[in-house]
Design a protein around this nucleic acid. Structure first.
Lengths: 296, 296
DNA sequence: CCCATTCGATAGCCTATGACTATTGGAGGC
DNA sequence: GCCTCCAATAGTCATAGGCTATCGAATGGG
């Protein structure tokens, strides 16, 4: 059996005329005749009674007709559903960001995303790097925004922007008065870090790997915001990514943020998605919005 | 699009593995691969995400899946419905009888019909000859039982049984005492007949065409039963078909039924159906039941 | 009463689809 | 680094489904 056969059958049921039904189906009359006969043959039942100058449905034909109509209607539904989804920049896109990026990046790009990709419903998630990559691989999310590099087996990545690190010190700390801070200036300082699992922790340790700092092992912050408050309370200093120091997140409340002198240590923020993803266009578009926003 | 494609798609959605889906669909893996790709191409949307060692559905694929399932389920329903209807001796059969046959024939055959054709639901209608033929032509009914011959354009007929006519006279009528009645004995009698439209009226007139009878023009009965009562009331005599004089319909109540001497005038009762009818087997079976019942 | 018309079925032919086997190519796992 | 798994590709073939031309039965009109 075949959708086409059902289409012919319904056309014939509607017109009650082989010729007209064929015309309505854009095929020749013998073609429609043959297909109807084949359908009847396949089902082992006569559907149509061919009276001279009159075509009627048999009992069985009348029972089958509504099923056939329903099938055709649903198949049309599939097509139109697909047509609607056809715009690659529409539909849902599940995007996850790591905690040290999400809260600071999103306010900057949200408005532009909504404006430039109005058909795209971006669903937002927050995961640390490793769970994010897991969710990406198991298909839970389509796109991740995080610090590169990441192991990229089956994954594709793209750099979005370079994010400088800054130093956050208590207001009364000696470094707060220096015009700019060199990496060496941190020697001997008490470094506060995020708990395990946050990539920012590893990045900060990496930045400081050549200088002699002491990690304050007694406290590990669960978020940048608690980290910031710990610095303000004078428990030590820390490195913050630049976006986390802008707008409402800047200096103040007992905490001073200093830029590094050149060479400025940075981290690379990028996008990551499955090589096999069906949403590469939407992903490209989202990446482009972030890049151009962060460039300015 | 094609039912087969949907079947492949659902198999793939179930197994999440091209090879297994192909096996379940009894085709080779490349065949299934190609058809899935063709379906995606036709819809203009990717349905399947081919990750290495893992197959997942895209958002669109997940939206389409339930529709595809429903289509396949309904198509199976069509097939099984047809299979059920496949027995030509099952289902409904709409049968009409003329008023001078129906009430007398049905009690004789009903039990046997139910016993020999238990799957066949016989729907009964009563029409006079002309409307019966009309309903037959427009497909309202499948089979008619009436007095032959009838104009048979596009119709097929079959003799079922010969039905002798009898004479019904009031008890005190001279003919009531004669051992048997010859046609000529009716000469000069007052003949009561059914109203126009009943074929029995024409048949009675035909039987009496060579003898000199007076039709009682003042009364025309609307049914055999009123005709019978008019005879019992002494308004005249009439011809009755034999079946209408048997069992509970015999002599009595002031009315005597006499058989004709040879040659006995008869009418032929037969079946009529559309040449093109899809139910010829069921019709044959019903005819056979009537014939064998009436033969004994 | 015969002829023209209507309409579905049949015959004969052609092409595009959907099937197969064999093979390639890319990713992962040991 | 090799082996394995698994989908995609290449190449070939049968046939389902399309067409045109024509037939034959049944009607309706002149």
């Amino acid at each position: 059996m075949n959708l086409r056969d059902l289409r012919y059958f319904v056309a014939l049921a509607d017109t009650r005329h082989f010729g007209k039904a064929a015309e309505r189906s854009f095929v020749s009359q013998p073609t429609l005749s043959a297909q109807i006969k084949k359908l009847e043959n396949y089902l082992g039942v006569q559907l149509i009674e061919r009276q001279p100058r009159k075509v009627t449905l048999t009992e069985t034909g009348m029972k089958i007709l509504p099923l056939a109509r329903s099938i055709l209607q649903e198949s049309d539904e599939i097509v139109s559903l697909a047509r609607n989804e056809h715009d690659p920049l529409s539909g849902k896109l599940k995007v996850a960001l790591i905690p040290t990026i999400g809260p600071y990046l999103l306010p900057l790009v949200a408005r532009k995303l909504r404006k430039q990709l109005p058909q795209l419903k971006v669903m937002l998630y927050e995961y640390q790097t490793q769970p994010l990559l897991d969710r990406l691989r198991d298909g839970e999310i389509e796109l991740g925004i995080l610090a590169l590099p990441v192991p990229h087996d089956g994954l594709e990545t793209r750099d979005l922007y370079e994010e400088p690190f800054t130093v956050a010190v208590p207001n009364q700390h000696p470094l707060a008065k220096k015009p700019n801070v060199k990496l060496d200036d941190l020697t001997g300082e008490n470094l506060l870090l995020l708990e395990d699992g946050h990539c920012l922790r590893d990045q900060a340790l990496d930045v400081c790997s050549h200088i002699d700092v002491k990690e304050n092992d007694d406290y590990r912050a669960t978020s940048l915001e608690t980290l910031r408050q710990m610095v303000a309370a004078g428990l030590g200093i820390t490195l913050l990514p630049e976006l986390a120091t802008q707008g409402p997140f800047g200096s103040g409340h007992g905490l001073t943020v200093k830029s590094f002198a050149r060479p400025v240590p940075t981290r690379t923020v990028g996008a990551v998605w499955r090589k096999s993803s069906a949403r590469s266009e939407a992903i490209d578009a989202v990446c482009e919005v972030i890049r151009t926003t962060l460039k300015g």
